[in-house]
Design a protein around this nucleic acid. Structure first.
Length: 295
DNA sequence: CACTTGACCTGTCCGC
DNA sequence: TGCGGACAGGTCAAGT
């Protein structure tokens, strides 16, 4: 599930609640979801306070005052949901989070926290498919952790200009553009939804090799990537099935989707029927009229 | 090196 | 109603 906009929404939500809170216990029943040793947890996690939240690509980083950080990847079905008294959900609150208590059967890790006045709260890491993970690492070592070290530029960073995007993408000039967008070492944070959406916006066929796409189209694609990611962040992300934000709310971006999961429906631009194909092993949605494969 | 496939897991949906 | 297979937002590793 969660791609850059969803992860960004989770981080912004947690940033309202976690800083200053102290972690007093952690429970997990699926070791792969939290593969640190008990000694490591005792020494660097328990008793530590949260100093800040960050996102890098699709990774969530929770920095602690022990100079260690919790790095969390939600993969396909992960959720990080906070429950504390300060949320004050009233009757009619749009949050889904009061529907069904946590922990539930998808809860893999439960963090218990206290604030400076001793008031208790909890952070639940839920993950139906168990692909996701949370892991405690020394903060100073994060830049040398393999997947963070190799990760490509952040599409929404000011320093990531169109030129930066182009020079990163050309490393895979013979590859299909969709596979390139999904490659986190080329550009960070794009997944299946936003790859399909940005390619439709830029009128590029997902199987088009990079070296057959003009510079002006690539520039347009980069602009559309940023626009679609920002629109989704402003919509609270995409909820296809599992995704919820830190309060347990669903995202509404998919109501704006032009192609994703719209196979059989009319293209909003030309009226042609949207079709679904398989590109780079992933379900892929295109308008066959707007997105032609060029020789 | 580029590309494909299988693996990691659970749950849901669809056809028989 | 049951069963088998395909498929699902993401990444790795291993094979061709």
């Amino acid at each position: 599930m969660p791609e850059l906009p969803e992860v960004e929404t989770v981080v912004r939500g947690l940033d309202k609640y976690l800083p200053g809170k102290k972690i007093v216990s952690v429970d997990f029943d699926w070791p792969k979801s939290f593969p640190n040793s008990q000694q490591y947890i005792d020494n660097y996690l328990l008793g530590a306070s949260v100093v800040g939240l960050r996102r890098r690509g699709k990774a969530i980083i929770i920095d602690l005052d022990t100079e260690y950080s919790l790095v969390i990847h939600l993969k396909m079905t992960g959720q990080l949901v906070y429950r504390g008294a300060e949320q004050r959900f009233g009757a009619g609150h749009p949050s889904q989070s009061l529907q069904g208590a946590l922990p539930d059967k998808s809860t893999r890790v439960t963090f218990k926290l206290v604030d400076s006045s001793g008031k208790a709260s909890k952070l639940f890491f839920n993950d139906q498919r168990k692909f996701g993970w949370a892991r405690l690492l020394p903060t100073i070592e994060l830049p040398s952790i393999n997947f963070l070290k190799k990760m490509g530029p952040e599409p929404l960073a000011e320093t990531t200009t169109a030129d930066v995007f182009m020079s990163s993408v050309v490393r895979r000039k013979n590859s299909k553009i969709k596979a390139v967008l999904l490659d986190q070492t080329v550009i960070a944070g794009i997944g299946n939804i936003y790859a399909d959406e940005s390619l439709w916006l830029a009128k590029i066929h997902p199987e088009q090799p990079v070296n057959k796409i003009s510079n002006s189209k690539m520039n347009k694609l980069f602009t559309q990537i940023k626009d679609v990611l920002e629109l989704s962040i402003n919509s609270g992300g995409s909820t296809d099935k599992n995704y919820v934000d830190a309060d347990g709310n669903k995202g509404s971006f998919l109501t704006f989707a032009n192609v994703f999961r719209r196979q059989g429906q009319a293209c909003k631009r030309c009226g042609e029927t949207i079709v679904k194909l398989r590109v780079a092993g992933r379900g892929t949605h295109i308008c066959p009229k707007c997105q032609r494969l060029l020789k």
